[in-house]
């Protein structure tokens, strides 16, 4: 079953009179429960493609259908609600709100739901336990290591039980040990909890955790098995 259907999607950034093609006529299907890795040099368009899948940027052309929803036609508010229900997003850095504890950071997306306080607590406890940080729930981001911060971010991404987990270079700022921990969690979420994962990375070691790897170069999504 296809979770994400991308058809002839392009993204053009306009800077004054100049047009920069960030993504050109990309088509891709991502199977439900798959773990796709997007690789490519800087400026190849991999983060642009990830942002388009997450609905945090809009395509200049083409169609993106996720779990049957064509997200190109949604308003900002509809997209916000859709993201809350469907997407878990992990940034490379600056991921947590510094004035909130790990627990409160993970609870954030649940504040937009109708769950009661007790139900929210149950969800947050489960998500933090899954990433092995239940004992750090009262800690602020500054009291956590980089790897722990990223694991809290993963807990926040999965706390609403989303269909899709999107990670933009989640190990880019981490040491090797922390990076392995984060990748192990993403792999566990994919294999044990059947989450569909799309990860952007430069790191070939990280890419080994994925089931499918696609390369991009100068805004073009290369055929499967071809690298830049």
């Amino acid at each position: 079953m296809v979770a994400v259907e991308i058809r002839n999607v392009s993204k053009i950034f306009k800077k004054e009179a100049q047009e920069v093609v960030a993504l050109q006529d990309a088509s891709l299907d991502i199977e439900a429960g798959g773990f796709l890795c997007l690789m490519g040099p800087s400026g190849s368009g991999k983060s642009t493609l990830l942002n388009l899948i997450a609905g945090i940027d809009r395509p200049s052309g083409g169609r993106i259908v996720i779990n049957g929803d064509n997200i190109a036609g949604m308003s900002e508010s509809q997209l916000a609600t859709w993201r809350n229900h469907t997407i878990g997003f992990i940034f490379q850095t600056f991921n947590l709100i510094p004035v909130l504890t790990a627990f409160e950071n993970v609870e954030l997306p649940l504040l937009l739901t109708k769950l009661t306080r007790t139900e929210r607590k149950e969800h947050v406890d489960t998500a933090l336990a899954l990433v092995g940080l239940k004992d750090r729930m009262r800690h602020y981001p500054r009291q956590l290591s980089g790897g722990q911060e990223q694991r809290v971010a993963i807990a926040r991404a999965i706390v609403t039980d989303p269909l899709l987990l999107l990670a933009d270079e989640p190990t880019g700022d981490l040491d090797a040990h922390s990076a392995d921990e984060v990748l192990a969690i993403l792999e566990k979420l994919n294999k044990e909890f059947s989450k569909t994962v799309v990860m952007v990375t430069h790191d070939p070691r990280a890419a080994r955790h994925a089931t499918v790897t696609r390369h991009l170069d100068k805004g073009v999504l290369l055929p499967e098995g071809v690298s830049a």
């Binding site: 945090i56 508010s77 993201r83 991921n95 937009l112």
Partner: peptide, 14 residues
């Protein structure tokens, strides 16, 4: 950056 994170999590502009 934090505003971007909140919006990514599903917070509307409003």
């Amino acid at each position: 950056g934090e505003i971007a994170i909140l919006k990514t999590l599903g917070f509307s502009p409003g």
